[in-house]
Amino acid sequence: MEIGLNHYLVLSTILFSIGLVGVMRRKNLLMLFFATEILLNSVNIAFAAISHYYGDLTGQMFAFFVIAIAASEVAVGLGLLIVWHKRYNNIDLDYLNTMKG
């Protein structure tokens, strides 16, 4: 049985929906970050698969930039999360409503 591009796209979709469910049902901000990583990784799989089946390197380039963005997002996000946790002593989304009008 030959593994085609559709197999990879379906796998990427399944992982993406797992990440989306995680983003929607998590209340803890750290868990929300984990779900975001899952989303970015599923897109990376799709990029690499399209790059392979088209014989084009551009998909891999985009995957590299996605990885770079994910790394910097983690650094800034965790820094902000630590500051928030120092001040309010929790990282739940429900308490993050200081901008509520």
Binding site: H52, A63, F64, A70, V74
Partner: peptide, 26 residues
């Protein structure tokens, strides 16, 4: 998956950056 797809460098970067740097940061 990246190694199966022939994207060797991307697979190595995935291991180094994600399982190394990002997980250590977390």
């Amino acid at each position: 998956f990246f190694f199966i797809l022939g994207a060797d460098f991307l697979g190595a970067v995935q291991i180094v950056v994600y399982s190394g740097a990002v997980m250590a940061l977390y």
